[in-house]
């Protein structure tokens, strides 16, 4: 088991090296991508700054807390996009052309090969930029180092990444039956947008409360950024952390089972 895990870790590292080498051979494209991400963060920050010029809180979140939330979202989303997004989006094409054959032939875990084979270094800077924004927010609120909160943050940040990854994997798996999967990837963008806002926004409106319940307990997308941001700069609730851990395990298991079920239906396009 340990040997297999190490082998997969080494493979991901190798894939990272080769995708970086490929990215570097198209330098211009790489630089444009980095600039776009930087501009996007700048626009987001400018927007929230404007909002907080008119009010002191948004759904009980103060400006520095919200800034931390935005940084957390940016870093987490950057991590997802860097590690998994390209591989998952490309899966549809692999199914359509039959090139998935070559992945299924390899003596490695198919899920790892499908989702991690195209590391996108163009979005990796988002993780760093998100980290800088979080650090800036902590500085603004005079945050004092608390090891329990720090560890809980790291753990729930990883859980949030895993939940988002599971959801992306499940949507990706539909490609085997649908062959064209653009609309489902649109759904990914919709749900990932949900993670961009604090859960309290939905709770403060009666008609939106069912959405909050749905995306917390059924499709736990609202846990992705809310829980790590909360444990770090707001309320540290051990029960919520425990629930997040359980939701992470359930999401990873369910999405893996669904992916494997999808592979059994793979027909391999004619050569």
């Amino acid at each position: 088991m340990i040997d297999r895990t190490l082998r997969h870790a080494r493979l991901i590292a190798s894939l990272g090296r080769y995708t970086l080498a490929r990215e570097m051979s198209f330098r211009g494209n790489y630089l444009v991508k980095l600039s776009v991400e930087l501009l996007w963060l700048f626009i987001l920050l400018a927007f929230y700054k404007t909002v907080f010029m008119k009010t002191s809180t948004v759904a009980t979140w103060t400006e520095p807390q919200y800034l931390f939330f935005v940084g957390c979202h940016f870093a987490l989303n950057g991590l997802i996009e860097t590690l998994f997004m390209d591989g998952c989006v490309d899966f549809t094409e692999l199914v359509r052309t039959g090139d998935l054959d070559f992945i299924l032939l390899k003596p490695m875990d198919e899920q790892v090969l499908v989702t991690c084979r195209k590391i996108d270094w163009g979005t990796s800077l988002n993780v760093v930029m998100g980290g800088v924004v979080m650090a800036l927010a902590l500085y603004q609120m005079n945050w004092r180092f608390d090891p329990v909160r720090a560890v809980a943050f790291v753990v729930t940040f990883v859980c949030g990444t895993a939940i988002a990854y599971s959801f992306m994997l499940a949507l990706t798996s539909f490609s085997v039956w649908l062959v064209r999967n653009q609309s489902l990837m649109e759904m990914w963008w919709l749900f990932s947008s949900l993670a961009r806002y604090p859960r309290e926004i939905f709770r403060s409106l009666a008609w939106a409360e069912p959405l909050s319940f749905l995306f917390t307990y059924i499709l736990p997308f609202l846990l992705v950024v809310n829980v790590p941001a909360n444990v770090m700069v707001r309320v540290f609730d051990p029960a919520t952390v425990a629930f997040t851990l359980a939701a992470t395990a359930a999401s990873l298991w369910a999405s893996r089972m669904f992916f494997r079920r999808a592979l059994r239906s793979y027909r391999s396009a004619s050569s």
Partner: peptide
């Protein structure tokens, strides 16, 4: 091993030697 004449498993934008190195990793 399966070789399909009409399909390509090597990394298109990289030298074949990089794909070979990846195979070395995958097959240990």
């Amino acid at each position: 091993a399966l070789v399909m004449g009409q399909k390509n498993q090597l990394w298109w934008d990289l030298p074949a030697s990089d794909s070979f190195m990846l195979h070395k990793e995958i097959y240990s």
